[in-house]
Design a protein around this nucleic acid. Sequence first.
DNA 1: AATGAATGAGCTTTCATTCAT
DNA 2: GATGAATGAAAGCTCATTCAT
Lengths: 193, 193, 193, 193
Amino acid sequence: MPQRSDAQANRERILDIAEDVFGHGGKSASTEEVARLAGVGIATVFRNFPTKAALLEAVLVRHFNRLQAEAEARLGEQDPGAAFFGFFRHLVAGAATKIALVEALLEAGGFGDSEAAEASHALRRAVGGLLQRAQQAGAVRNDVELPEVYALLVGTSRAAAQAPLDDEVRSRMLAIVFAGLAATGRTKAADFS
Amino acid sequence: MPQRSDAQANRERILDIAEDVFGHGGKSASTEEVARLAGVGIATVFRNFPTKAALLEAVLVRHFNRLQAEAEARLGEQDPGAAFFGFFRHLVAGAATKIALVEALLEAGGFGDSEAAEASHALRRAVGGLLQRAQQAGAVRNDVELPEVYALLVGTSRAAAQAPLDDEVRSRMLAIVFAGLAATGRTKAADFS
Amino acid sequence: MPQRSDAQANRERILDIAEDVFGHGGKSASTEEVARLAGVGIATVFRNFPTKAALLEAVLVRHFNRLQAEAEARLGEQDPGAAFFGFFRHLVAGAATKIALVEALLEAGGFGDSEAAEASHALRRAVGGLLQRAQQAGAVRNDVELPEVYALLVGTSRAAAQAPLDDEVRSRMLAIVFAGLAATGRTKAADFS
Amino acid sequence: MPQRSDAQANRERILDIAEDVFGHGGKSASTEEVARLAGVGIATVFRNFPTKAALLEAVLVRHFNRLQAEAEARLGEQDPGAAFFGFFRHLVAGAATKIALVEALLEAGGFGDSEAAEASHALRRAVGGLLQRAQQAGAVRNDVELPEVYALLVGTSRAAAQAPLDDEVRSRMLAIVFAGLAATGRTKAADFS
DNA sequence: AATGAATGAGCTTTCATTCAT
DNA sequence: GATGAATGAAAGCTCATTCAT
């Protein structure tokens, strides 16, 4: 029972734990477990997030924002191909234990006009930026477009989030996708595999 | 609410509805909804499938068996490349509204030594057969192996199962994956896209 | 599935099995188990006994009637003391695995005007006859009356019906009660222990 | 429906009501009825006792502990015979409306190594203490042992718990048992009847 | 007459959410 | 603000009973 601890700190701790709990157990994990692991009362969770959906959304927004920041940071890298494929790999690797997050990734429009929808779109735009640069640099075929690339990002993340997919298989799976995305056969993309 | 209409027909209708319901809502959809949509009492569902898990398993077994039959039928086709890529496309297209089923696809071993586990492995073996023939025929790179191919099958299915992914995007997504799998650049696989 | 078997035989088999099932599991045992063990369909049970309560009652009536017959048979024995104490011991020993039956023994008035109530009263009267003769013969104290004797019969039966009460303990328990009932200390009653 | 009145008081009220409800209806009485009579929501019952079995156990433990305390208090009495027979009478009188509790009394070992098993054994030991002192004082025959005495305790309680057994009959029933337990004929024990 | 599939009410248990402290 | 006890609406599952065959 933390006394007079800063409310903001509580909110962050709840989000951290929720990300973990929902990541492992899916959205069907219980709010009470979040509260318990966060070391706060259940009512404190509901004070900060009036609804379970709101909590889930907050987790997603934060996660999307992080990914967006990561993507935008890579926009400034020298090698646009390395930037694009590196981000792709980074996102998929990070999804390994975040089932619920990945589930939400594609539901772009499913959030209504919520903050989560906006965060999701912003991430998508950032990925679009990486793709465009990679195409202009000749690292990715010019005839692919964002929707299918994004779908692949989500799909491979989803595959990686399941339990029995070890690192090596994930790597080989990505090598195939990258080969398909690469401008000239698979040679170039293989560099990032 | 039909009574005593025909036991076998009832069982099949329950399975059909359950495939639909669990396909959309995931395994968290309620058994009661299955019963209601099937037009039977809740107890009838539980008479046929003593447990919710048993119902889900029965749905999966039937689905896996269908896919396996489809895969094995294609083993006899003349063009091994067309057989492999055609089946891949077929499976992904069919996954469009079957979220939970796809979820279960990768959980392969998670069923203990149940019937579902065996059905899942049988499907995997059948896919392995298609892959092997396609490689021998030079349609698929020799350095890819079943685990990553299966992961891609699952991942792209998962991506396709989400709501706002229309046919064209799905097709273009698969074109990328097929290009990555194709033996010589993307030329060959593109034929099946 | 017995075909065209005599209906009466079915009824008897159901009663036999029900006595066993309810004896072990109490009245909360399921009717379906009775049907299964009797080798008949569930509907056959309900055709013969329109209600679970009716089945239970039929079991009780038969059991009470048997005990009554046994008691009345002993009325003709030469030694009234041996007749009384012997019947007491017989009833308690027989109760060992018949929880539900014993439960019902004391509920004399609880059956309304049903057949079971009559059977229960008839048994009670028969026990009264044995008691009276034993008292007239000087084997049982004259100041005890049927209500408390019947209560002891039921109580010791109940104790014996519980699982971990082995034969020897039951015997020693009865020896105490018999000593209390005997006219002159415990000497006489001990003869029957 | 009081809210947040006082947790401990609520817990006690639930236990009180449960003792009553299970006492009358046996363990097949519904938890929902306990909640309703206690004036709390069903979930409140399950918050305090995570399982129906746990609730039943808690009721039993409390009951056993009370009886044990009573027995031990009587260990200090001057007249060991009065202590033993008095406790016997007290326990049987108290059982009048506690069918299920009495049922549980003999199932002693049936609880695994739960708290209820320990409480039951402790009670049994306390009764053993009373018995031993009464025997040393010459108030109870030396050749009786705890198992049969305990069985009689349970059996007479069971008999007394049934509906139509009025006070006088119960008293006369006990007089018989006490006469059987008494060291020299029935003279001595009759004093406590 | 016999069957067993179908039924719906009811039970135990869980969980998001509210509210008195 | 924070707490956690209390809530009621499901959910999964069982069982006595009915009814078409």
